[in-house]
Design a protein around this nucleic acid. Sequence first.
DNA 1: GTCTATATCGGGATAGAC
DNA 2: GTCTATCCCGATATAGAC
Lengths: 202, 202
Amino acid sequence: MTEIQLDTEKRILLAAKNVFVRKGFDGARMQEIADEAGINKALLHYYFRSKDKLFEAIFIEAFSGFIPKIAGLAIAETTFFEKVELIVHSYIDMLVANPHLPLFVLHEIQRNPENLVKMMSSMGVNPVLLGQIMSGISKDDSIRTIDFKHLLANILGMCIFPFIARPILQSLLFNQNKEEYDKYLIERKKIITEFVYNSLKL
Amino acid sequence: MTEIQLDTEKRILLAAKNVFVRKGFDGARMQEIADEAGINKALLHYYFRSKDKLFEAIFIEAFSGFIPKIAGLAIAETTFFEKVELIVHSYIDMLVANPHLPLFVLHEIQRNPENLVKMMSSMGVNPVLLGQIMSGISKDDSIRTIDFKHLLANILGMCIFPFIARPILQSLLFNQNKEEYDKYLIERKKIITEFVYNSLKL
DNA sequence: GTCTATATCGGGATAGAC
DNA sequence: GTCTATCCCGATATAGAC
C-alpha cells in the first residue's frame, strides 16, 4: 500500500473499505474502522456524518469497479473471441486484486435494492447499450447463435464463482492448500476462454 | 406453506431460516424471528440458548442442501452428458425453490470458515471422493479432456450466478421485469447443458 | 481537526410469575 | 411452555475541550 501518510479522509476511506468489505455493513464496527485508520470514532462522524453515509461512499466506488467494463469493448476492432479473452483476463485479474469485492457487492445489493437502479443509470449502464452489444454479437456468423444475456451470465458466473466460493472449494478440491488455489484461479483465465471458444466456434 | 399449526420448535426454525436467509447473521434480529414465529423473544432462548446456537441449527440444514448431490451420480449408469444434464436441472430447480440460499451460505461461510471443514467431512464430502469422480470423467474418451476442478466451477458458477446477481441482472438485462427474469432462469437449464455439451463433445 | 467523555438506544439474554 | 419485565452491554452518535 505504501502509505507514507495519506490525509485523514483518504485513510478513513481506505480503512472503511477494508472493514466493510470483510464484514459487511451490519458486521462492520465504527470502532474497527477508526482503529484501522489510526484515529478515533468521533473523527469518523466529523468527516462522514453517519455510518450509512460512510458506507454509501465506499459502496459506490466498489460497485463501479465490479460492473464489467464492457461498454468500451462494444466498439473495439477485434474479433469476438479476442473480446471474450480480454474480458475474462482483465476481470479475473481485478478479482485476484480484490477477492472480497464480489460477495460484498452482491450481499449489500440485496440489503438495499432500491439504490441499485439509480446507481446503474448514473453510471451509464442500461439495457439499450447492452442491446447494441447484443446485436453486434449475433451479426458474427463465425460463432454459434447464443442469447447475449445467457452468454454474459455464463462468463461472469465462471469468473466470479471460484472467488466467492473459495472457502468451500479450497477445502473441497485442494485440501485447504492456499498456494494451489491461487494457481487454480490463474489457470481459469485460460480455461474459461477456451471453454467459451470451444462451445461457440463453428 | 400450509401451516395448520406446527409445534413451536418447528415454527421457530422456519421463521429463523427465513429471517437469517434474508438478513444474514448480523442483520437478523431475534425480535423479528419471534414475530415471524408468532411468539416472543424469551421463548427463543428457551428452545435455543443463544442466537449463535439457533443460527447453527439453521445453517447446517441450509448448507447441506446447497452442496451438490454429486456423490450418487458417480456410480450412476448414464453417459457423461446425461449426468451433466441431471446436475444442472436438479440444481437450478433447487435454486428456484430457494433463491436466497446461495448468497446466505456463501456469506456466512466467510464469517466462520473454521466450522466449514468439520461440516464438510461430517457430510462425507472429501477430496478423495471427488478424486474418484474425477478419474471417472477423464476415462470417457468421447469428450474433450478437462480438469474436473474447472468443470465443476464452470457448471456451478453458471447455475448459481444468475440467482445471486439477480438484482443487478434483472435491472441490467430485463428492465426490472420479474416475470421475464423467471423465464430466463428456467431457460438456463437448457442453455447451460448445451453450452457444456458443445464445449466438450468431440 | 482531533481528542475525551458521555448521551442514547437497540438488542441479546435472563429472572421470575403464571 | 409461555409470558412480561428487566438487565446489561455494545455500538452509533454527539458535546465540548484543546
